[in-house]
Design a protein around this nucleic acid. Structure first.
Lengths: 148, 148
DNA sequence: TCACGATTATTAGTGTACTAACTAATTGAT
DNA sequence: ATCAATTAGTTAGTACACTAATAATCGTGA
């Protein structure tokens, strides 16, 4: 049992915990978001747009720490559902502005109930959630050394 | 009203941190696992098999907290790469035993270097990794209330 | 023994998520 | 004014991950 074996085991535990936790979160949200007609990534997009809109697809991708190529079809589905608008910006036609429809804006009222239902299902309190958020900080968001 | 807005924001932060952290972990491992010819999920499968093999596909899926339907094609790719064997168990032909080939067993030597390279890239130490692992425990692994 | 329900794995279909290659538009430099 | 470089999005192709439906096998009880 060398140091390397121990490290491999710790590595395994961390990765496993992180990946399964992310999967579980999606599974927990699924039944709660389903009545809203949203998947979990779509929910994150709507949260970002409720904070600020309209925004270019690129800015949105940057804030959500995802690739424009991933966001592009996702936003198209939201447009198909009538929650979101996709319009070329007049000053620069390369830019695609993503905005909210009245229907998309109205959805926020239903979304306000989501967090309480999540806390009820998981039995987690506000403090635990804050601790988790803070513990994840070193890994979260867009990681600079991954760009390029 | 304001309470609900705050909760929605906290909810957003936690989910966002968790999901992007999981994505980032995969991105960090990608270039390191690429010379081994493994994706990150495949790496987790090999880690589990190095601990114990052969094992049925169902047992493996249980330990990895994933669905058999997800694991099935993943294991087939590992078989195609010559790392893994897929054989029906004689006593019960419904069961598919997943074992290691000599090549799959040998791969472990190269994998022993992975954790140090990860720590070098991320700049994280053993203690930080342990803290993160422990912080994720309430969400990690197979969640009982999701079964069914 | 034969029919039935349970167990185990696979297939089909949807939805992210990534990289790489591509189109279209703008900017900058000759 | 034109051509090169850059920027913004999209498309193509691969790989997870889930649900639902299917197939194959096993065990049991009539």
């Amino acid at each position: 049992m060398s140091d390397e074996e121990d490290l491999l085991k710790l590595d395994n535990q961390v990765c496993f915990a992180l990946v399964t936790a992310a999967r579980n979160v999606v599974s927990i949200y699924r039944p709660i978001l389903e009545p809203l007609g949203l998947t979990h990534p779509q929910y994150l997009v709507m949260l970002a747009l409720w904070e600020q809109s309209p925004r270019s697809l690129g800015e949105l991708a940057e804030e959500l720490a995802m690739e424009p190529a991933t966001l592009s079809p996702l936003v198209k589905r939201l447009e198909g559902q009538g929650r979101v608008t996709r319009t070329r910006r007049l000053e620069d036609e390369r830019v695609l502005d993503i905005g909210l429809t009245p229907q998309g804006r109205a959805l926020r009222q239903q979304a306000l109930e989501v967090p309480r239902r999540i806390m009820a299902v998981t039995g987690l309190g506000i403090e635990q959630l804050k601790d988790l958020r803070d513990g994840l900080q070193p890994f979260a968001g867009r990681m600079p050394h991954l760009a390029g």
